[in-house]
Amino acid sequence: MPILRLEMHPGRTPEQKSDFVREATRVAVEILKCPPESVDIVIHEVPRTEWAKAGKLIAQA
């Protein structure tokens, strides 16, 4: 059972998330040769205040 975990900043619309999970599931099924029912996707929205890149908080960049 593949579990795909996506972390991103908040702000995507429900439609964008729906499109993403549909396409990610399609690709997982195609490449991993598994049934769509076995693909789980978890979207975790991380606020910019809790995200850092290259040693700096993104909110402070």
Rank of each mutant, 00 (worst) to 15 (best):
E50K: 14
R22M: 12
A54I: 04
K56M: 08
I3S: 04
V27M: 02
Q16N: 00
I31M: 09
S18V: 04
A28Y: 03
E7I: 03
P2G: 06
P2C: 00
K53P: 01
V39P: 02
E37F: 07
V29Y: 04
A54G: 04
I58E: 03
E15D: 15
V27E: 01
P47S: 11
R12P: 12
M8R: 04
L4A: 05
I58Q: 05
R26G: 10
A59P: 06
E37D: 14
I58S: 03
R12V: 10
R22A: 15
Q60F: 10
K33H: 15
R12M: 03
D40G: 01
K53H: 07
M8F: 00
V29W: 06
V42N: 04
V27F: 08
E37R: 11
L4M: 15
A59Y: 05
H9K: 10
R26K: 15
K33D: 15
P36R: 11
H44I: 09
V27A: 15
E45K: 03
A54N: 08
R48M: 02
K33F: 07
A24I: 12
E23Q: 12
E30M: 09
V42E: 10
L4D: 02
I3K: 00
H44C: 01
E23A: 11
A54L: 05
I31L: 12
K53C: 07
E30R: 11
G11V: 13
V21W: 00
H9N: 08
V39G: 00
E15W: 04
I3Y: 03
T49R: 13
H9A: 08
P47V: 11
E45F: 07
G11D: 06
V21Y: 08
A28E: 04
V39Q: 00
S38V: 00
K33R: 10
I31P: 02
A59W: 13
I58G: 01
M8E: 02
T25C: 07
K33S: 12
R48I: 03
K53S: 11
